[in-house]
Design a protein around this nucleic acid. Structure first.
Length: 584
RNA sequence: GGGCGCGUAGCAUAGCCUGGAUAAUGCACCGGCCUCCUAAGCCGGGGACCGCGGGUUCGAAUCCUGCCGCGUCCGCCA
């Protein structure tokens, strides 16, 4: 079945009558729960497959469907047409019902999207490393995490954005020493300019070849962890300059993250001994060659021995599992979170499963807490390999975004030369950045996807430019119409043509598709839906003249359809973090 | 070796959780449509033994199971 035609609104409107009709035929209880979305759009919106009833009622599915249909059809008059086809009862929304539903949506600023009992959620996403370049690997986490945050907020939840920046650990000895070698000012300039790659590589190169440097780096790590003031000050310079640069990327990308959302690894430092003592007090901490570990059970290593989660290394240092447990303590106990969401790549799946398991065993989370690893696949090139630059290095995220904007600008210059200057640049940003984000959001997130400029920037297919184009066309209609939007009270809405009906039945589904996308943390479901709306609108646009409609009533009705479509597209895209320009 | 995930037209993807009717969408391909609201579009057409084999079911792309292929992870990096 095509996932966009779920018609939950219609289901709510008819389910009592359907249950009554089934009861009339002698079907009750679990078995009566057969009403679902139709799989073939031409047959209807909803269907009751009667095949499983045959052995109980001792009649053929065809007979049963006809019996129920004759019962149900009069009851649903004015709401939906009911017909029996080869053992299915098909229910298809009537134009009058669609019209009424659209009138209600038109009055509702939220387009039918309800707010829920508020939960408190921490969303852990983006997580770049200080003094290291952001690359496409960070793109997915940042874009998907941001869309989920926006949907959660829209549904009325309290959301803590948690940017778990890599700002601590042994590499910082090396980085600080390199900072000193360059001179603070020079180094800060280099980092502030966004040349993070160069800085990190120079430091790494020295570390690999210069023994004196290695010694200095080691000492510096000790000083950093010992809380030496001057070392901490230098560390702060690295962090601040990197964050300045990351914020530029976030701004270019149009995500919600700000400095307030930074919760780097260093913030949990004080909780690490606490993690150890809590685990120790529970008696689940064990010694393994001097390291302190927990065996959550259920995992084995290559040799078939139990696989531990390492809490404290033999040298006394901590590693990431400990920090992740400290995060859980912080989010549960300080922030009062119900939901802990981690937008992190699939390769870390086992790590999170183990961490969550240990957190449960240690009582850091109870039944009221839901920890969820929102995993995602890799970005591949056209050969199916991890996307890299020509030189075989990770592609800088800024380069990628800039190229997308440049490509978009070239297309605008070519297609619509009347748009010039600053306006063209602004529109190019919306299209170029939107295309990259949409390409990332529109595929099922757990799968890898293939990065392809031509496809994502195409104005055809399931792309953001196609959706933005539909929106821009509607804006153009309203500019010419001299009618002010948003329209609120339009009556009657007239659903006569097939194209009007198709658009209407898609628009009615917005709220349930938002719910479904959020419930499964799957922004791509919202994308698929929005594309179906834009596609239905394009057919409507070709076949149903708006401004030159036969009469004023139809003209207003069609303007209302346009307005609802525009609001659905712009609200939907904004939930994904994508802008829609009024012209393109 | 073990864990996890993936395999759907030439290509790229939905659909799988929650089993239903002719497997959907886009690109590419073929054929139509601009004195008319943005043709960056629309309409029509061809193209798939849903990796392979078993099982459950009235019914399987969907659930279970075995195999094949690919990816990924498997103790002191994050």
């Amino acid at each position: 079945m095509h996932g966009v035609n779920r018609m939950k609104i219609l289901k709510q409107a008819v389910e009592d009558e359907v249950a009554a009709a089934l009861a009339g035929a002698g079907v009750e209880g679990e078995l009566a729960n057969l009403l679902g979305p139709a799989t073939v759009e031409e047959h209807g919106d909803l269907a009751v497959p009667c095949h499983s009833l045959a052995p109980i009622l001792k009649r053929s599915p065809v007979d049963i469907a006809e019996l129920i249909t004759s019962e149900l059809a009069p009851a649903l008059s004015g709401i939906a047409e009911v017909s029996a086809v080869s053992g299915f009862v098909n229910i298809k929304a009537e134009p009058a019902w669609l019209a009424t539903s659209l009138s209600e949506l038109l009055l509702d600023e939220r387009l039918g999207v309800s707010t829920e009992n508020p939960r408190v959620a921490a969303v852990d996403y983006s997580s770049p490393n200080v003094a290291k370049e952001m690359h496409v690997g960070h793109l997915r986490s940042t874009v998907i995490g941001d869309a989920i945050v926006r949907m959660l907020i829209h549904k009325g939840h309290t959301v803590y954005r948690e940017n778990h920046v890599g700002d601590w650990g042994t590499p910082f000895g090396m980085l600080i020493e390199h900072l000193l070698d360059l001179g603070e000012d020079n180094a800060a300039d280099e980092l502030g300019m966004g040349d993070l790659d160069g800085f990190y590589k120079q430091a790494r190169a020295k570390f690999n070849t210069d023994e004196m440097f290695v010694e200095r780096a080691r000492n510096r790590v000790v000083m950093l962890q010992g809380g030496d003031d001057e070392t901490l000050r230098l560390w702060r310079v690295l962090v601040d300059e990197s964050m300045r640069y990351f914020n530029e990327v976030y701004s270019m990308l149009g995500v919600l993250l700000t400095n307030d959302d930074i919760m780097g690894e260093s913030n949990y430092h004080h909780l690490l001994p606490e993690v150890v003592s809590r685990l120790d007090n529970l008696g689940i901490l064990e010694d393994s060659d001097g390291a302190k570990v927990v065996y959550p059970g259920g995992w084995v290593n290559r040799e078939g021995e139990p696989l531990p989660l390492i809490i404290q290394k033999a040298d006394g240092g901590y590693n990431y599992a400990t920090t992740d447990l400290a995060c859980i303590i912080d989010r549960v106990e300080r922030l009062g979170c119900n939901d802990l969401l981690y937008v992190v790549g699939t390769p870390q799946s086992q790590h999170f499963k183990m961490v969550f398991e240990v957190a449960k065993q240690a009582g850091l989370m109870d039944k009221s807490h839901i920890a969820n690893h929102i995993k995602f696949g890799s970005v591949l090139d056209s050969d199916g390999k991890i996307l890299k630059s020509r030189e075989g290095e990770a592609i800088k995220l800024v380069d990628l975004l800039n190229e997308s904007v440049v490509r978009a600008e070239q297309t605008i210059a070519q297609r619509n030369p009347s748009i010039e200057g600053e306006q063209r640049i602004e529109i190019a940003k919306a299209i170029g950045i939107g295309a990259v984000k949409y390409a990332d959001l529109s595929t099922e997130r757990t799968k890898d996807y293939i990065f392809d400029w031509d496809r994502m920037l195409s104005f055809e297919g399931n792309t953001s430019p196609y959706l933005q184009y539909a929106y821009a066309r509607i804006c153009s209609i309203f500019r010419r119409s001299k009618v002010h939007t948003p329209l609120r009270d339009v009556s009657p809405i007239i659903i006569e043509h097939a194209e009007e009906a198709l658009l209407a039945r898609r628009l009615v589904n917005f709220s349930s598709m938002v719910d479904e996308a959020l419930y499964t943390y799957s922004p791509h479901r919202l994308c698929t839906y929005l594309h179906s709306v834009a596609s239905a609108f394009a057919s409507f646009y070709e076949n149903c003249p708006v401004l030159s409609a036969e009469d004023d009533e139809i003209r207003m009705s069609r303007l209302a359809l346009c307005d609802l479509t525009a609001r659905t597209l712009s609200t939907g895209l904004s939930l994904l973090g994508i802008d829609c320009p009024e012209q393109m």
